[in-house]
């Protein structure tokens, strides 16, 4: 079942005219409530440090990019870590999940209900609970404080959810095509690559987008399992930047804006897929 975003026609207004004005005012007020703080943050990046203190509401006295450049220099390294961890873990998570989902929907596996329960059951387990033992495990593996630790953990903790999404999608795919391929003598591996994977493209894109959002913003693991500046990702890097050059608030505002920007852009570019992923994840 693919979700159709086509909306039912609304020939007549739902809300009576009297109420409509009020509702619009309400929606508009909520919009301001959401956007103004973000705008304030972005503008703060243009202000001088003393203007932030003396004139919090005013527009910047000048539109100098100096703070943004400073913010960029301070976050560049974290940005790189975030980029690496996000890209690699997205790739591993979605690949492993697609592969697993195929196995779970298209092949015979002994004890399949148990396997399904085990993998999808991982969704119910909270990362907080695993924290203490993971410290020791990662130290024993020698990957504490490394990108590999984050990539492994992001993959392990997101494979259940991602598999769940892809599996649900695959269950709804018609079987005629892979049956036909089977008749033509295609192996399961070929069917996976040539038939099913291309058909799953929409849900795969949704999963990629959802995982990017997760990995770019993850804080708990990144905070506890990394501590070198060269390894820390943006969410943690921003807080250490705060404590390192905390008195330059303008640069902190700029850095916050810089780190939020990529993900907001990705959201707007991929809204459609994003919404599908979210609704399938929770609505099923």
């Amino acid at each position: 079942m693919t979700m159709t975003m086509a909306l039912p026609s609304r020939s007549r207004p739902f809300w009576p005219a009297m109420l409509r004005g009020m509702l619009w005012a309400f929606l508009f007020a909520m919009g301001v409530l959401v956007l103004y703080p973000l705008l304030w943050m972005a503008l703060g990046g243009f202000k001088s440090n003393s203007q932030i203190f003396s004139d919090p509401f005013a527009l910047p006295a000048s539109w100098s990019l100096e703070n943004y450049l400073a913010g960029w220099r301070a976050t560049r390294g974290y940005m790189l870590s975030s980029l690496l961890v996000t890209l690699v873990s997205t790739l591993t998570t979605v690949m492993i999940s697609a592969w697993t989902a195929f196995g779970l929907t298209r092949t015979a596996i002994p004890g399949k209900p148990l396997v399904v329960g085990f993998i999808l059951g991982g969704m119910m387990l909270s990362p907080t609970v695993a924290l203490v033992p993971l410290v020791r495990m990662l130290q024993d593996l020698g990957i504490y404080d490394s990108h590999a630790a984050l990539i492994l953990l992001y993959t392990a903790f997101r494979v259940p959810f991602t598999t769940f999404l892809i599996r649900a999608y695959m269950l709804d795919l018609p079987r005629d095509l892979d049956e036909a391929a089977m008749m033509d003598g295609a192996s399961p591996g070929q069917i996976f690559r040539k038939v099913i994977l291309p058909l799953c493209q929409p849900i795969l894109i949704s999963c990629v987008v959802l995982h990017i959002l997760f990995a770019w913003n993850e804080y708990l693991f990144a905070m506890i399992f990394t501590n070198s500046p060269g390894v820390q990702t943006l969410p943690v890097g921003l807080t250490s930047m705060m404590s390192k050059q905390g008195t330059n608030f303008a640069a902190v505002f700029a850095a916050m804006t810089i780190s939020a920007l990529p993900i907001v852009i990705i959201f707007f570019l991929t809204q459609r897929y994003f919404i599908r992923g979210l609704t399938q994840g929770i609505g099923k």
């Binding site: 130290q139 024993d140 504490y144 404080d145 501590n227 070198s228 500046p229 250490s240 404590s243």
Partner: peptide
């Protein structure tokens, strides 16, 4: 080379391993 924040975590890691 660690800083004020990171040195505590790094030390504990190195001790534990």
């Amino acid at each position: 080379q660690e800083d004020d924040d990171s040195v505590k975590g790094k030390t504990k890691t190195l001790v534990a391993s």
